[in-house]
Nucleic acid binder design. Structure first.
Length: 784
DNA sequence: CAGTGAGCGAGCTTCCGCTTGACTT
């Protein structure tokens, strides 16, 4: 038994630290929080000054028991949880549960797992900081109150019966997506004409190079653009002025959780949860430092290794020492930035994590490399006929610096169409005459802000100080699981644009078309998400405010610094909040999410789009009418807010009866699993290219025949009464009864057709009695 | 696998943040 027991949060960390500290120290992990508020009655005694009621969750019993025993048998316990609010609270809970005296128990902290940092920490133990603990308790209790008081309001006031939820983080995340969608829906694209002139000139080698110059302004109308081109007929062009300016680019900071998720999404197309899964794997195998962090700091040891790697691989000139600072005030910086543990490993063998590791390696190295040096050239070109100016700009890389290995990606949001990468210009001299090849005025449309990707939503949340590195991925999953948000693609629509061209002193006009509004893997709000957001905005505007978290974080900080009493702070929040809850329960109407679309031309009955028990639908007529109302389910891409009357009426064309095939009606409809045809009590999924609104009988008939013969071919034998089938599967013959499959023993497999009913029954009984051994889960091959 | 959509209301759901395995298809 070691003399000292050190408790940290993560087991991977425990292993490393144990090696550093040597044999007098046993290092154990508590796997995060070991206690939480009870679920019953919110786990808070509100009347008693918000006294929390803590309990040890089932899955933590085992580790708590083990820690208790170890703590009893050891001379001294050291609490080495993370140096932030949550970590301090975990240490306090450990004191409470393990029976340690908080006034004497040693608390140590470090924000990097390196030998010097840990040895230093052990030299300077401190005591628990109860103010910090209280700030965490306030945070925990406030989140519980918001979540557990708001969610039941939704259960009462929403007519849809899902397991709805609301919370400080998730509800604001949904709000961002809802508001972005509405911005896009109401956006009016405005077009303007952008002028580009193409010239050729000889470069230093005497080779002809074509380069581009931009017009003086964007023209609002085609007429204005044409007028400009007309003025240029017969013009001479000459270089009026050349400016050469040096420029530089600097590398981005090393990865935090949020920036790693963004880059992995932009460059590798990973979802945030995939990124975190792979990063966890790398962390557990000791390849990278901790992956849930908001710090951009690198340890001195790491900085030395990085410098080494850069100078050996690229030379001294490529190294530049840099210290990055967090922009974000809410950062708690308990860890280092995400970096490889061993900089000498530029890659890993494992194929799953290879790409992510290389990304981390490059980003880390680049962060300590020199600036890239550029030379930006701007040439002004005079037009003789109207003395307007064209501007050609070029960029030449003089020294690549960090760009040698890494360039940060960009979101759509940050890229305007003005900002195309400039190529290089040929060597020009002032007064040089230029030959115009062509001048074009192209119609371009303004674009709305793009929909969020998972990663760009994380970026936004982080900017607002909402959520923590450990919750970004789970939050994104939650809002999708609750049905507030969907990740999907959207097809673009065709849009015409005009091009006016001046070539050989003649103006021509053409119209071309482009695809616009196409989206891939973007977050869309559902009708449910919109309705719930509107409701919460209306009755709980303070919690839904984008600044709410930042505001209460400020108060938590005051608690942490001993300037505010935690239960008083909670009371200040709770009194008005709870009044809103009661008020809403009493006054708010049940929300149906209805939107009137118009009236039915035939019957004069009202047509509404609304939420039904099974999702958004269209209803013609009212429930209280004599004749039952007619219903149609909306398509998954439609929304209550935007569907038109025409689109709604179109939905009532289903189910369609296509006529008879083999004396039975063929009906086409859209079901839970997509479009299908029903015939003789059998269902046939329509092929992707078949449109249920237009598909014809002669397209469906082969589908029916095909499925029937495929089934015949698969069937070896049927015992009708007992519902036992012997079938041919991809791995050979097998027995099926009901929904379960049974493996045929090896010795009978070659004569599967000869199996009798008795034999089949025996096999089934046998398999039931001795269930097959479980195999390791198959590797997921498919990327998302 | 695929059809539904009143109102009544039993018994259910729910938060955020800290950490990893154990489940079978």
């Amino acid at each position: 038994m070691a003399k000292n027991l050190v408790i940290v949060e993560s087991p991977a960390k425990a292993k490393t630290i144990e090696k550093i500290l040597g044999k007098d120290f046993e290092v154990k992990s508590c796997f995060g929080h070991i206690r939480d508020l009870e679920k019953d009655d919110m786990g808070i005694d509100i009347a008693n000054n918000f006294k929390p009621k803590y309990t040890i969750p089932d899955d933590k019993e085992k580790i708590v028991k083990e820690l208790k025993k170890l703590a009893k048998d050891t001379d001294e316990v050291w609490l080495a949880t993370d140096e932030d609010r949550e970590g301090e609270a975990i240490s306090w809970h450990l004191c409470e549960v393990l029976g340690l005296d908080p006034d004497v128990t040693k608390r140590i902290v470090f924000h990097e797992i390196t030998k010097p940092a840990i040895e230093r920490a052990v030299q300077q133990p401190r005591l628990l900081d109860m103010n910090l603990v209280n700030a965490q308790q306030a945070r925990r209790i406030l989140d519980r109150i918001v979540g557990f008081e708001l969610s039941p309001v939704l259960w009462r006031k929403m007519s849809m019966r899902n397991s709805l939820s609301a919370g400080r983080v998730q509800s604001v995340a949904v709000r961002l997506i809802v508001e972005r969608e509405r911005e896009i829906n109401t956006f009016n694209a405005v077009s303007s004409f952008k002028v580009e002139a193409f010239f050729t000139a000889k470069d230093l080698q005497g080779k002809n190079i074509t380069f581009k110059a931009e017009g003086p302004t964007r023209f609002k109308t085609a007429e204005d653009a044409e007028k400009f081109l007309q003025q240029c007929i017969g013009a001479a062009y000459s270089v009026k002025d050349i400016q050469v300016k040096p420029g530089k680019k600097s590398p981005a900071a090393p990865f935090t959780t949020s920036t790693l998720q963004q880059e992995a999404s932009r460059k590798l197309g990973y979802s945030v949860s995939k990124t975190m899964l792979l990063a966890q794997k790398l962390y557990e195998s000791g390849k990278i430092t901790y992956m849930r962090t908001d710090s951009v700091n690198l340890s001195d040891t790491a900085l030395g290794d990085i410098q080494n790697a850069i100078t050996t691989n690229y030379g001294q000139r490529y190294h530049q020492h840099r210290k990055f600072k967090n922009k974000n005030e809410s950062a708690q910086e308990a860890h280092e930035a995400i970096r490889p543990t061993y900089m000498e490993n530029a890659t890993v063998d494992d194929s799953d994590t290879k790409k992510l590791y290389e990304l981390i390696w490059k980003r880390t190295i680049a962060s300590q490399m020199s600036d890239a040096e550029l030379e930006k050239t701007i040439a002004k070109i005079d037009i003789s006929t109207n003395h307007e100016e064209l501007t050609a700009s070029g960029e030449v890389l003089k020294f690549d610096g960090f760009l040698k290995i890494y360039m940060e990606g960009k979101d759509d949001e940050d890229v305007s169409d003005e900002e195309e990468s400039d190529g290089s210009l040929p060597a020009l001299t002032v007064k040089q005459a230029l030959d115009l090849k062509e001048m074009k005025a192209t119609e371009r449309y303004s674009r709305p802000a793009p929909r969020y990707t998972e990663a760009s939503l994380v970026k936004k949340l982080e900017e607002l100080g909402i959520g923590r590195p450990s919750t970004y991925a789970p939050t994104i999953t939650t809002v999708q699981k609750r049905g507030y948000v969907e990740k999907r693609d959207k097809e673009g629509i065709k849009r015409d644009f005009r091009i006016l061209s001046l070539k050989a002193d003649k103006i021509t006009k053409v119209t071309e078309s482009e695809n616009t509004g196409a989206e891939k893997s973007k977050l869309f709000p559902t009708d449910l998400g919109m309705i719930v957001t509107d409701f919460l905005n209306q009755y709980f505007s303070s919690v839904m405010d984008y600044g709410f978290t930042a505001k209460i974080e400020g108060e938590f900080d005051e608690v942490a610094h001993g300037k505010k009493i935690w239960n008083k702070m909670l009371n200040d929040f709770y009194t008005p909040f709870h009044k809103d809850v009661e008020n809403t329960l009493e006054k708010a109407e049940r929300v149906k999410g209805e939107r009137q679309l118009g009236t039915d031309q035939e019957t004069g009955k009202p047509i509404v789009a609304r939420m039904g028990r099974y999702g958004p639908m269209i209803q013609i007529g009212k429930a209280e009418d004599e004749e039952k109302p007619k219903f149609a389910k909306m398509k998954s891409t439609q929304s209550i807010e935007t569907i038109t009357l025409e689109e709604a009426m179109e939905l009532f064309r289903l189910p369609r009866n296509l006529g008879q095939f083999e004396d039975q009606d063929v009906l086409v409809n859209i079901g839970r699993f997509g479009p299908y045809a029903a015939h003789n009590k059998q269902f046939y999924s329509l092929k992707k290219e078949m449109d249920p609104y237009t598909v014809e009988l002669d397209e469906i008939a082969p589908l029916i025949v095909e499925k029937r013969t495929a089934k015949d071919e698969r069937t070896i034998k049927i015992f009708e009464k007992e519902k036992i089938q012997i079938l041919k599967g991809p791995y050979g013959p097998y027995i099926k009864q009901g929904l379960r499959n049974y493996k045929i023993p090896k010795e009978k497999i070659d004569a599967a057709a000869d199996i009798t009913l008795e034999e089949a029954k025996a096999i089934i009984e046998d398999v039931k009695a001795n269930p097959p051994k479980k195999k390791a889960p198959p590797r997921k091959k498919k990327a998302e």
